[in-house]
Computed example of a mutant assay.
Amino acid sequence: MIGIRLGLGFASAALAAALALTPVAAQAPELAMLDRLERGQWELRLRSDGSRSRICVRSGRELIQIRHRQPGCERFVVQDDPNEVTVQYTCRGNGYGRTTIRREGAGLVQVRSRGIEGGRPFSVEGEARRVGSC
């Protein structure tokens, strides 16, 4: 019985050592697609009513919380692909949202966001396009 335990312990240690020496593929930074967007002034045009608003994009992450502009919201990355990201977020005391951003080019994205803001549901679908400098 002791020999079996020692054998299993040795095998486990050998496996752990082999895994530690195996090179790990480098992972891209989280939400890297947003980092590839052009910095500057972006115009978001909503499909529902044609209204337009401007957003100064510094990191691309400004497009995640279109209806919840306050800082300090908790975020959870649901999907992180090279040309599309989905992020779910919660803003304590003010609601939550789930936003999908699909990149069509460095200066053009499609945005879809749904959630609750101030106790009321919202749904936003539109196109954001870089229009100049901030």
Rank of each mutant, 00 (worst) to 15 (best):
S12Y: 13
I2Q: 13
V109P: 02
S133L: 07
A16N: 12
S48I: 00
I64H: 03
A13P: 04
D81R: 08
L8H: 08
V24C: 15
C56R: 11
P121V: 03
E127D: 09
P71M: 09
E117G: 09
M1P: 05
E125I: 15
G9F: 04
A11L: 10
R47F: 10
E84A: 14
R54I: 00
C91M: 02
G107I: 06
G72N: 10
R75K: 07
L21N: 07
A16K: 12
C91Y: 05
M1D: 12
G3W: 12
L6S: 13
V87A: 02
Q79I: 14
A20T: 04
P121M: 10
T100C: 05
T86H: 03
A25V: 09
L63T: 01
R36S: 12
V124E: 12
S113T: 12
R45W: 11
C134H: 06
C56N: 10
Y96R: 03
R69W: 10
R47C: 05
G93S: 09
E30Q: 15
A32Y: 01
A17T: 13
Y96D: 03
I101G: 02
S53Q: 15
R129V: 09
L108H: 02
L108P: 04
S123W: 07
Q79A: 09
V131Y: 07
E38C: 08
T99Y: 04
R47V: 08
L37W: 02
F76K: 13
D80S: 06
A14H: 04
N83A: 13
S51M: 07
G115T: 01
S113F: 03
G72I: 11
T90F: 08
T100I: 06
G105E: 06
V57I: 12
P29G: 14
C91I: 04
L34W: 02
H68N: 08
Q70T: 13
I66D: 03
R39P: 02
D80Y: 04
V24G: 05
R36K: 10
Q65N: 13
S113V: 07
S123T: 06
P29V: 12
R47H: 15
V85T: 05
R58I: 15
T99R: 01
G50L: 06
G105T: 14
R39A: 09
Q88A: 06
L8T: 06
F122T: 01
E117F: 04
L37F: 01
I101P: 03
P82E: 14
I116M: 12
L108W: 00
G7P: 01
C91G: 05
C56V: 09
E104H: 10
A20E: 10
G105V: 13
Q41M: 06
R103S: 02
L44K: 11
V57W: 00
M33E: 02
Y96E: 02
E84C: 08
V78M: 15
F76C: 09
R92M: 05
R69P: 14
R120M: 08
G3D: 11
R47Y: 11
V124W: 05
S53V: 07
I101Q: 00
Y89A: 02
I55V: 11
